[in-house]
Computed example of a mutant assay.
Amino acid sequence: MTTTLLATIPSPPQGVWHLGFLPIRAYALCIVTGIIAAIFLTRARYAARGGNPEIVMDAAGISVILGIIGGRLYHVITDYDSYFCSNCDLVQVFMVTNGGLGIMGAVTLGALGVWIMMRRRGLPFAPLADAAAPGIILAQAIGRLGNWFNQELYGRPTDVPWGLEIYRRVDETGATAPLTGRSTGEVLTVVHPTFLYELLWNLGMVVLLLWADRRFRMGHGRVFALYVAAYAAGRFWVELMRSDPANHILGFRVNTVTSTLLFIGGVLFLLLIRGKREEPEVVDPRGDGSRTEGTDSAGVDPVSGTGDTVTGDRRGGSRVSGPGPEADGPATGR
């Protein structure tokens, strides 16, 4: 007698629950959970670097809003055939709750918004970016569970023991509804769970970033650059396993090309930018996270945090003990 043991991974029977008229979407819950985890971790890490953790809350508000916009823009642009066609419903462009956020666009626009915020406050961006990197990738790992509930972004059919079952889902009328419907129990196919591969890769990156930062006291944006390079490397091989429709550039999936460019950029940054972790007086000269009075923001590189900092009692990191020829009072910030 031959016994065959099937050890496939089931998909959730549904990704949306209704409390009266209110839809509760697993995809949204995963994203929100990831954001909360990232905020807690980033607050602790930024405070350890000498920054005001309340800055993280301000940055989170900006990055979440711009991240959703950037993520949706990236997804719509790179998958434009699904939204701009003769029989497409343009309203779907704005239906973020149905899935479809490109993490590369989300991080790019979110980071740009936070960079502008930090520059306006006269604070260096790099220490905050380095503090946030492990939290960002942790949020991405948690967010990948949303793709599991949505039965999306999976790989090619497979017979490996950990293959993912994709069910047929229907709505109340019996019509096919992959995102909002409920499973009939019919297995349409068994595929590579690429969401799980990326989730595990991202969790490994959390460990790598925390270890590297602690071991080498990385600063000047190098932790963030390591995050970019490592994530891009993982996303590259995961993309090679996916079979869902995608636009191509020179015969390659768009995300494969983007991952390659991000990997090269991250590695070049690590090779070209040197320096240990910034001192607390550089991270937050006044110690309260506000715009630094007496600090000429042009004198401090908002990306690397290097340069001379004048705060009335410090000049280039050296304290001025009292009035005298060397202490000519605080400079006027602008």
Rank of each mutant, 00 (worst) to 15 (best):
G174Y: 05
M205D: 11
S297H: 15
F216N: 05
P302A: 05
V190E: 07
G299K: 09
I69A: 04
V223F: 01
M118S: 15
A229C: 06
I142P: 13
V267N: 02
L123S: 04
M104E: 15
V257L: 00
R334N: 13
V96S: 01
G204Q: 11
L271A: 11
F94T: 10
P13C: 13
I24F: 12
L179N: 08
D244G: 00
L210N: 07
V190A: 02
W237A: 02
V56Q: 07
M104F: 11
E54R: 07
P124D: 01
D301T: 02
H192I: 14
H248K: 15
V283E: 08
R72H: 05
I65Y: 07
I24A: 10
R121T: 14
G67P: 15
Q140M: 05
L250I: 08
G102M: 10
S290D: 14
E152R: 11
V257I: 01
L208D: 12
V223T: 09
P13N: 15
W211H: 05
T42K: 12
A48C: 01
F40V: 12
R315V: 02
V187P: 10
I68F: 15
G181F: 08
T332G: 00
I142R: 04
W211R: 13
G34D: 03
S63K: 03
A175L: 03
R43Y: 13
S86Y: 15
G329H: 04
G289I: 02
D328K: 10
E278V: 14
S11A: 05
R274P: 03
G113H: 05
L123R: 02
R235M: 03
R49T: 00
D296H: 14
V320S: 12
R49I: 11
I273E: 14
M218F: 11
G143K: 14
R182H: 15
V32Y: 15
L41Q: 09
G67H: 07
R215Y: 14
G110I: 10
L199Q: 09
G100T: 13
E54W: 12
M241P: 07
M95P: 07
G287Q: 01
L199F: 14
G251P: 11
L203A: 06
L128Y: 10
G185P: 01
S63Q: 04
G181Q: 13
F269S: 04
D159Y: 07
Q151L: 05
L90H: 09
T194Q: 12
V282Q: 12
Q14L: 13
V170C: 03
M1A: 11
A233G: 06
D296R: 14
I69K: 08
V114C: 04
G234M: 07
L188S: 08
F269I: 09
V238D: 10
P302H: 12
T184E: 01
T78E: 14
R319F: 13
V303S: 02
L145M: 05
G122H: 09
S297G: 13
G275W: 10
L196D: 02
C30W: 12
V93G: 08
L272S: 04
I24G: 01
A232I: 04
L188N: 11
